[in-house]
């Protein structure tokens, strides 16, 4: 979503993005001319008149699970976004019975929060597990 019109979105997809991705962008490219949606989400830069790089993870109940906002010159890490979705999906599937510690990715060990884990995380989780 940006302040550009849907007509400009089409031209960008036709002229450039479809050369990067076969068949063009697979998801809707939305227009927020005037920034009304961006203002509600706290990502509209009034001085510049554009949206900043905000990324919101919204769960199937419409609840905000996480967000990240960057100034324009730095791009996002899509792998990290996907990792976070995978972690939130696991939490949802286990109904909070498991938690994903720092550095978790699919296949890595989860923690089971409870009284037995108090003061024992050091036995279950090592600092090198924070890194890929």
């Amino acid at each position: 979503m940006s302040i550009d019109s849907m007509f400009v979105h089409k031209m960008w997809d036709d002229d450039e993005l479809s050369k990067m991705v076969d068949g063009g962008v697979p998801f809707p490219m939305l227009s927020d001319a005037g920034g009304n949606v961006g203002k509600a989400y706290g990502v509209f830069d009034e001085a510049a008149g554009v949206e900043t790089r905000g990324r919101f993870l919204i769960d199937p109940d419409g609840i905000l699970q996480g967000f990240e906002v960057l100034t324009p010159p730095v791009g996002r890490n899509v792998s990290e976004t996907i990792r976070q979705i995978q972690a939130f999906q696991l939490i949802r599937e286990t109904k909070g019975g498991e938690a994903t510690p720092s550095g978790w990715r699919p296949g890595k060990k989860t923690l089971k929060p409870g009284i037995d884990l108090v003061g024992k995380v050091w036995q279950e989780w090592k600092t090198d597990m924070a890194f890929d």
């Binding site: 979503m1 940006s2 302040i3 550009d4 400009v8 979105h9 031209m11 960008w12 927020d32 961006g38 989400y41 990502v43 510049a48 554009v50 949206e51 900043t52 790089r53 905000g54 990324r55 919101f56 993870l57 919204i58 769960d59 199937p60 324009p72 996002r76 976004t81 979705i85 939130f88 999906q89």
Partner: peptide, 10 residues
Amino acid sequence: WVVLCFYPGD
């Protein structure tokens, strides 16, 4: 699940 992304411009 929805990923909603804002960006400065096309």
